[in-house]
Amino acid sequence: MSDYDIGELYVVDNRRVSFILNVLLYIESKHSDWEWYFFHPLTGMNIADSTIMQHNKKMQVEFLNSPFIPFLLKKNIGGHETCKFLVASIDGFSENNLAKLITYCRQNTNDNINDVEIITCDYFPDDHDSIKRKVLSANETELNVSLGNFKPNFRNLANV
């Protein structure tokens, strides 16, 4: 590595690459009439940069090793721009994971976005509806939260 000018090295396994590709396929199929963008939250690394775009088509390299990837979806409805915040998690559906993701969505959405979709690889309404209701009532959020499954299988084919 000393022969090359490499500042950082990322090792990405098949699970992560499959996660990213499955999420992008999900967005392209389920939200085909929306423009989608990677959402770039403000962090200590970029907060001083006033020129930074909080969303664009380029994925930040840090998302390669992140447990979740946030997206901003935009759609023009009757001359009015509508936005949706979507977060995909590589971690399975659980009460704790859902609560964390709802908190993340609340912290990163502004007043014009109240539609949020959280997707995991193993969410099934029949199995997880009671957990969803419990977490949503405990978090008392003004967000309209929907849940989905980005990994196609026989249990969620009816929802595709």
Rank of each mutant, 00 (worst) to 15 (best):
V116E: 10
I118C: 00
N65M: 14
D13L: 09
N159S: 04
V61Q: 12
V135Q: 00
I90E: 06
S94V: 11
F85Q: 08
D49S: 11
H55M: 06
H31L: 10
I118L: 15
S32F: 13
Q107A: 10
E142G: 10
N96P: 07
V116H: 06
P125Q: 10
Y37N: 11
N156I: 09
T82F: 12
C83Y: 13
N76S: 15
T43C: 13
M59P: 00
D49L: 11
S32P: 01
F154G: 06
N149F: 03
Y37K: 06
S66R: 04
V61D: 04
R133V: 08
T109P: 02
I119N: 01
E117S: 05
R106H: 04
E95L: 10
Y10D: 05
W36L: 04
V87P: 09
L25H: 14
I90G: 03
F85P: 09
E140F: 11
L73T: 06
S2E: 15
I119D: 05
L136Y: 05
L136I: 05
I77T: 11
M1T: 10
V116Q: 01
I69E: 01
K75T: 02
E8I: 06
S29E: 10
K134P: 00
M1V: 04
E35T: 08
V87I: 11
F39A: 06
K58D: 07
V135C: 02
K134A: 02
N14Y: 14
F39H: 12
Y123E: 00
Y104R: 01
L101G: 00
K75N: 06
S94Y: 09
P41K: 08
K84G: 01
R133M: 07
L42T: 12
L72D: 12
R106E: 13
A99F: 04
V116I: 12
K134S: 08
I27S: 05
D115G: 02
K75Q: 15
N14C: 13
W36K: 06
D127A: 03
L98Y: 05
Y104K: 02
R15H: 15
W36A: 10
A158F: 07
V87E: 08
K30L: 03
T141Y: 02
S137L: 02
N65Q: 14
A88H: 00
N14G: 14
L143T: 01
K30R: 08
N159W: 12
A99G: 06
R106L: 03
H55Q: 13
F63W: 15
K151H: 00
G44S: 12
K75A: 01
T103K: 10
S2G: 09
N97C: 10
S146H: 09
E117T: 00
K100R: 09
L101T: 08
E117N: 07
N110I: 02
F63A: 05
I90A: 08
W34T: 01
F63P: 00
M53A: 11
N144M: 04
Y4K: 13
V87F: 07
P67I: 13
H80T: 13
N76R: 12
F39R: 05
I90C: 02
D5E: 12
I102F: 07
I47Y: 14
N159I: 04
L101E: 06
I52T: 07
N22K: 15
N149C: 03
M45F: 14
P70W: 01
N56P: 02
E142S: 13
P67C: 01
